[in-house]
Every structure is written in structure tokens, then in C-alpha cells.
């Protein structure tokens, strides 16, 4: 593996309004690896993701993709960079007024000219990959929640992005489909060389796909390592997470609006 990281996050401090959620986060993502960010609810996972995608501007710190700093980019430069990334949102975030096929074709159309016949085939391919062949003509509200989510994945990988971000991919999917998704992530990495950044707390999925695990707690990185490292670690919060132990008392964890 090339040891030069393609994403570097350094001392990131961020949050919403005056409320800081991320406390000097640093992490690297290397080409072709699957990084999984875990942590309890409200630990700052989603905020981290939003900062990394430029949807939120950090208070301080730096985020670089291929050496380019995004925190100081203007909208246009950022948009250009985001076109090389794919994002699968938690609930699918499909455009309600377009068919499934049009949703997936949208980035293909917008990012550059493509022959319509080829585009149609590509849409079919992406739908096949997520196990939804033949649904291109349906409207999003004709799909179940899990199907919408999978169409969201298909849209995220529509233009063969270099990095794909998944926000809680297996939440609300049945175990069979969740396992299919894990396989899809592994296949994409292996066959297409895509780098994957996943935010999740699905233990089974983490054990299966993660090359490296980054655990957040109260806005800080408290652990970084492989699945094997997790089994050996003595960091109590990590142990508690992987052993599924409840808190002794339910502490106030702070309510955070996404």
C-alpha cells in the first residue's frame, strides 16, 4: 500500500454554532483502504463526516485531499473536488421527483458529457451491483426504506469516485442485505480500487470490512487500529463498545442536533 495518505485531517475543531463537537481530531486515510469510524451516539461521527465533505466549515484545523486544503477553498473549487467523492447518506437522500434511474444518472450527466446509451447501461450496472436490477423506472416513494438506501449507494458510486463515504450504511437494512453491502464495499475496493470511509456502529460489519478502525468519544479520537488491535486493546471505552456493555449509569451524553 502506498503510504502517502490521500486524506489528512489535522487538529479539526468543529461543531454547530457555538457548540463544539469535535475536539482536535486528526486522522489519515490511505489509498485503497477501508477506514471505519465508530463511536457512540452523539460522539461527533456525523459532524466529522460533514466537515470532511465541506458541508460544514470547521472552526479550526485542516482537511486535505490529495494534498489540497479544503477548508480554505471557495465553493467552486470545493464542488470540483467533491465530484471525485461519492457520498451515501443515511436515509438515501434520493430526489423525490426523479425516478431511481434518473437519480443515479444525475451525477453522470452533470459531471461531464456521456453518451445516453452508455449512461443507461451504467445505471443498470450500478443497480445490479446493489441488487436492485430492473428498478430504474420506479419512483423513490415506491421503494422501501432499505431499497432507497441501496439506490443511494448506487448513486454514490455512479461516477466511479476515488473515495466513497458511507454514513451508517447498514442501519435499517436486514442482515442479508447488510452482508451484501459489506461484500459490495469489499468488491469495490478490490476491483475498482476505491477508498472507503464508513461511519457506523454495526459490529459485524466492522469486523468484516475494516482495515482500520478510528474510534471517537466525546469529540476525540480515543483509538486507532486494526480489528486485531481492537481485540487486544485495553482502552476501556473501546472494550465496552465491542463487548456491548451498557454504561453503569446512564450519563448525560449531551443532546446534539445533526
Amino acid at each position: 500500500m502506498d503510504r502517502k495518505p490521500i486524506v489528512e485531517v489535522r487538529d479539526l475543531v468543529g461543531g454547530y454554532g457555538g457548540h463544539l463537537v469535535l475536539d482536535r481530531i486528526s486522522l489519515d486515510v490511505y489509498e485503497g483502504e477501508i477506514v471505519v469510524v465508530i463511536g457512540g451516539s452523539g460522539c461527533g461521527k456525523s459532524t466529522l463526516l460533514k466537515n470532511m465533505l465541506g458541508l460544514l466549515r470547521p472552526v479550526s484545523g485542516s482537511i486535505r485531499y490529495w494534498g489540497q486544503e479544503i477548508t480554505t477553498m471557495d465553493e467552486e473549487e470545493l464542488a470540483l473536488l467533491l465530484q471525485r467523492l461519492g457520498i451515501a447518506f443515511q436515509s438515501g437522500a434520493l430526489f423525490n421527483s426523479m425516478t431511481v434511474g434518473e437519480n443515479i444518472a444525475l451525477p453522470m450527466e452533470e459531471y461531464g458529457r456521456m453518451d445516453p446509451a452508455l449512461r443507461e447501461i451504467l445505471v443498470g450496472i450500478k443497480l445490479d451491483l446493489v441488487g436492485l436490477s430492473g428498478t430504474a423506472g420506479l419512483m423513490p416513494d415506491e421503494l422501501s426504506g432499505g431499497m432507497k438506501k441501496r439506490v443511494g449507494f448506487a448513486r454514490a458510486i455512479a461516477v466511479d469516485p476515488r473515495i466513497v463515504f458511507f454514513d451508517e450504511p447498514s442501519t435499517s437494512l436486514d442482515p442479508i442485505i447488510a452482508a451484501g453491502l459489506d461484500k459490495l464495499i469489499l468488491d469495490m475496493r478490490r476491483l475498482l480500487g476505491i477508498t472507503v470511509f464508513v461511519v457506523t456502529h454495526d459490529l459485524a460489519s466492522i469486523r468484516l470490512i475494516a482495515d482500520r478502525i478510528v474510534m471517537l468519544d466525546r469529540g476525540r479520537v480515543i483509538f486507532t487500529g486494526t480489528v486485531a488491535d481492537v481485540e487486544r486493546t485495553g482502552v476501556p471505552r473501546v472494550r465496552q463498545f465491542f463487548d456491548r456493555q451498557p454504561d453503569k449509569t446512564i450519563e448525560a451524553r449531551g443532546v446534539r442536533t445533526p
Binding site: I125, D128, L129, S133, G134, A136, G137, D187, L191
Partner: peptide, 18 residues
């Protein structure tokens, strides 16, 4: 070869579902 295997379903023309 693996990718082609993965895409096997798409080699058939899609059925019209109008």
C-alpha cells in the same frame, strides 16, 4: 474477470417493464 462476473446480469438486455 471478477468484475465481469459481478456484472454478468447486465449483459442481457433489460426487459421492458412499461
Amino acid at each position: 474477470a471478477e468484475l465481469i462476473e459481478l456484472l454478468a446480469g447486465s449483459f442481457e438486455a433489460p426487459r421492458a417493464s412499461a
